[in-house]
Simulated assay, not measured.
Amino acid sequence: MLTYCTNIHRGESWEEVRTAVWPRVLEVKRRVFPDRPFPVGLRLSARAAREATPELAREFLEECKRNSCFVPTLNGFPYGAFHDTPVKEHAYLPDWREPARVEYTLDLVRLLALWLPEGCTGSISTLPVCYGPSVSREEFTRVREHLVLVLQELARHAGRGINIILALEPEPDCFLETCREVAGFVATLELPEQLRPHLGVCFDCCHAAVVLEEPREAFAVLAAARIPVAKIHVSSAIRLPAVPPGALAVFDEERYLHQATLVAGSDIRRFGDISHALAAPPPLSGEWLVHYHLPIFDDGNKSYGSTNAFIREVLSCRPRGALLEIETYIPEVSELPAEDLICREFDWLRSIL
């Protein structure tokens, strides 16, 4: 199954999702899947999810049916405003240590349980516990309690034939950066057996490339730990084999964290943001990998390259059944209108599948 994530479109309230985001989704559907049902990778903020009352949610379900669309997955990572203000580290708040993250995720579960087609396994991607490398013992206990609350709700829905996976999304500089770390974390949770199938992974190609993850090994580790790969974010990082003057600075924008890895032979240096790398003492030479979510058709130019080869590697060994979701959320990096950019990404991805 192939879709794209609607976090590329601005829309924080339910009204904005319906009036600003949805018409763009239908335009992409018209151009990409004109003659068959279109899976929608819907991003809902906590505000939009809360505002989508049962009545409004049922109306949206009918709207989907009228337009031959369906919702197999929700992006539950960014809680609040995502486009019009700098978010940086705030993109990860509230995290799984806080009850607000549970409330938000349960709202998403309520909605997806209504919208998910019969026989389809759904997914909700979420942040990898929190931003930062560690949590205290007390915080870990709270994280486990909060995750169990959501997983118990998913198990109740599974009893009615509605299967949804909560998909942790590893990311650079977060508590869980790699699939191996996810496997270790899930083991320490010591979940009841009936809850295990409902906790999985959203494998983001951009994130994995930046932390130098090897796809075949990552998927093998998850399979051995019986952790499902619910979806794969088809996304591309910036690759700079060498840094021309100013090349790194071009991508230093104020809204999002752009974690960077410098590989100089056997020496690997990590930076929490491009701004940190630019402030580091010179010389900085070697290959750079930067978390940026380039349009996946963008192979770069004389100033920068991309990790599109990594996407091809991931696709060649991806687990069966994993949903593919294109995720590009900085449309300004391209001169194309967002809908044109998305359609071109679909064309590129289809050409290599």
Results as ranks from 00 to 15, higher is better:
Met1Asp: 08
Leu2Gly: 01
Tyr4Phe: 15
Tyr4Met: 04
Thr6Gln: 09
Arg10Asp: 09
Gly11Phe: 01
Glu16Asn: 04
Thr19Gln: 11
Trp22Gln: 04
Leu26Gly: 01
Val28Lys: 03
Lys29Gln: 13
Lys29His: 15
Arg30Met: 06
Arg30Ile: 01
Arg30Ala: 14
Pro34Asn: 09
Pro34Leu: 04
Arg36Gln: 14
Phe38Glu: 02
Pro39Gly: 08
Gly41Trp: 12
Ser45Cys: 07
Ala46Asp: 13
Ala48Gly: 04
Ala49Ser: 14
Arg50Gln: 12
Pro54Arg: 09
Arg58Ala: 08
Phe60Gln: 01
Lys65Cys: 00
Lys65Gly: 00
Cys69Gln: 04
Cys69Tyr: 02
Pro72Phe: 10
Pro72Glu: 08
Asn75Ser: 13
Asn75Val: 00
Tyr79Thr: 03
Tyr79Glu: 04
Ala81Glu: 15
His83Ala: 11
Asp84Ala: 11
Arg97Ala: 00
Pro99Lys: 15
Leu106Ala: 08
Asp107Arg: 14
Arg110Tyr: 07
Ala113Gln: 09
Ala113Asn: 08
Leu114Lys: 10
Glu118Ile: 02
Leu127Met: 13
Val129Ile: 15
Gly132Asn: 11
Pro133Phe: 11
Pro133Cys: 13
Ser136Asn: 10
Arg137Thr: 07
Glu138Ala: 10
Glu139Gly: 01
Glu139Ser: 03
Val143Ile: 12
Val150Asp: 01
Leu151Gly: 05
Glu153Val: 02
His157Gln: 14
Ala158Thr: 04
Leu168Pro: 02
Leu168Arg: 00
Glu169Gly: 01
Asp173Ile: 03
Phe175Gln: 03
Arg180Thr: 12
Glu181Lys: 14
Glu181Pro: 10
Leu189Asp: 13
Arg196Lys: 04
Pro197His: 00
Cys202Ser: 14
Phe203Ile: 01
Asp204Val: 06
Ala209Gln: 02
Leu212Arg: 12
Glu213Ala: 14
Pro215Met: 05
Arg216Asn: 06
Phe219Val: 01
Leu222Val: 05
Leu222Arg: 07
Ala223Leu: 06
Ala223Glu: 15
Ala224Arg: 14
Ala225Trp: 07
Arg226Met: 03
Pro228Cys: 13
Val234Met: 07
Val234His: 06
Ala242Lys: 02
Pro245Asp: 13
Ala247Pro: 12
Phe251Pro: 00
Phe251Trp: 08
Asp252Ser: 06
Tyr256Phe: 15
Tyr256Lys: 07
Leu257Phe: 14
His258Lys: 10
His258Gln: 09
Ala260Gln: 12
Val263Thr: 09
Val263Tyr: 12
Ala264Pro: 10
Ala264Phe: 06
Ala264Arg: 15
Ile268Thr: 13
Phe271Pro: 03
Gly272Ile: 02
Asp273Cys: 09
Ile274Pro: 05
Ser275Lys: 09
Ala279Gln: 13
Pro281Asp: 13
Pro282Met: 11
Ser285Ile: 09
Glu287Gly: 06
Leu289Pro: 08
His291Phe: 08
His291Asn: 06
His291Ser: 03
His293Thr: 06
Pro295Ile: 01
Ile296Gly: 05
Ile296Gln: 08
Phe297Gly: 03
Asp299Gln: 14
Gly300Gln: 13
Asn301Gly: 07
Ser303Phe: 15
Gly305His: 04
Gly305Trp: 05
Ser306Arg: 05
Asn308Val: 12
Glu313Tyr: 07
Val314Gly: 04
Leu315Trp: 15
Leu315Gly: 06
Cys317Met: 10
Ala322Phe: 11
Thr328Leu: 04
Ile330Lys: 13
Ile330Glu: 07
Glu335His: 12
Pro337His: 05
Asp340His: 04
Leu341Ile: 03
Glu345Pro: 10
Arg350Asp: 05
Arg350Thr: 05
